[in-house]
Computed example of a mutant assay.
Amino acid sequence: MDVFVATLLPLAVVVIMVSLGLDLTTADFRRIVTRPRAFFIGALNQVVLLPVVAYLIILAFGFTGETAVGLMILAACPGGAASNVVTKLADWDVALSVTLTATFSLTCIATLPVVLAFAMGQFMGEAVSDVNIAQAAFTAFLLTALPIGLGMTLRIAAPGAMAAIAPAFSKLAVVLFVAVILGAFASNWDVVTNNIGQVGFGLLTLLALLTAIGLAVSRMLGASDREAKTIAVETGVQNGALALAIAALLLPDGETFGAYAIPAALYGAVWIGATGAVFGSVALKRLLAR
């Protein structure tokens, strides 16, 4: 397996998760108790709504085999650190966003293998026996819970020093996220470009539906406007880097990514393009209104 898949990709995911841990305090987890409505609405969207919508997209677009499994892996991954950045730029509920991202980054150790097992059984038939679900769960632990715990421990041990480097670490995490997406494209350019039309449009539809439905469900269940918008972003933005790392496990001995990784690789490009278009249009409207 090439250097990107074997070394740089896991390293990038670890740095992103450590960055998240450096920004966390015990107060972030206490919000689960002090603001249970917002948290459980986010949990409903992330754990239930997201995989269900992804499954319906798979059926609607006719995705099969590895591509369908890859899309379900993406849906099972927690919100990425990018959701926190978007929430901050939009001046929504950053505290809630961080709490949701951190919590589901930890709980995905249990939920991701369940979704993966379902997807393999549903879409891969006899090939399901070739996939080690326990290994996927252990990898999720190594790439999420462990580095988040390390970041939190470092913050407790040296709060002053960690507070000073946390902003730079967060920026590095964003840079690495983009680098992971570019690396995924470069590692399997032919496979990605051959599928960018159908899969890319399916992912764009998934992103739009998750954001819209997440917003509607949140408001229907009594979340405030800022909470609803934050939860919608958290529902729509997935940790593509983690999805790529899990997809790499499903390759028996390949040197590049296979079809499992196509949804995660294309998702980053679709998300960056869609987010850039939204923020660009908002900025343009504000500029013209002056």
Results as ranks from 00 to 15, higher is better:
241 A>D: 03
220 M>A: 10
1 M>R: 13
247 A>V: 12
102 A>D: 13
279 F>T: 02
146 L>G: 04
148 I>E: 09
135 Q>A: 13
235 T>D: 05
250 L>E: 03
15 V>Y: 15
62 G>A: 13
285 K>F: 10
149 G>Y: 11
188 N>W: 10
88 K>H: 13
26 T>I: 13
103 T>W: 11
122 Q>I: 00
118 F>H: 01
183 G>Y: 01
227 E>F: 11
59 L>C: 10
209 L>A: 06
242 L>M: 06
34 T>V: 02
109 I>P: 07
162 M>L: 04
268 G>Q: 02
240 G>A: 05
175 V>D: 08
276 G>Y: 00
51 P>S: 05
269 A>N: 09
278 V>M: 14
30 R>A: 09
183 G>K: 02
181 I>R: 03
221 L>E: 00
100 L>F: 05
209 L>M: 12
21 G>K: 02
238 Q>N: 10
5 V>W: 04
250 L>Y: 01
84 N>C: 13
228 A>V: 04
244 L>E: 13
238 Q>P: 15
224 S>D: 12
273 G>N: 04
71 L>N: 06
3 V>G: 06
133 I>L: 14
40 F>I: 07
183 G>I: 09
40 F>M: 15
275 T>W: 05
119 A>Q: 08
97 S>M: 02
264 A>S: 08
89 L>P: 12
20 L>H: 04
178 V>K: 01
184 A>V: 15
164 A>C: 07
144 T>N: 14
172 L>M: 05
275 T>A: 11
135 Q>V: 09
37 R>V: 06
257 F>I: 14
152 M>A: 08
230 T>R: 03
153 T>D: 09
175 V>P: 04
79 G>W: 02
246 I>N: 06
188 N>F: 06
212 A>P: 04
160 G>L: 09
195 N>G: 10
75 A>I: 09
279 F>V: 02
71 L>T: 05
2 D>Q: 07
276 G>A: 02
159 P>E: 06
66 E>K: 15
10 P>I: 09
160 G>I: 08
145 A>W: 08
161 A>I: 10
278 V>T: 08
127 A>W: 01
239 N>T: 00
106 L>P: 15
165 I>Y: 00
255 E>D: 15
14 V>T: 09
265 A>C: 13
237 V>W: 09
266 L>P: 10
147 P>N: 07
251 L>M: 12
87 T>G: 01
44 L>R: 00
37 R>N: 03
52 V>W: 08
158 A>N: 14
99 T>A: 12
210 L>A: 01
70 G>V: 00
104 F>H: 11
159 P>T: 07
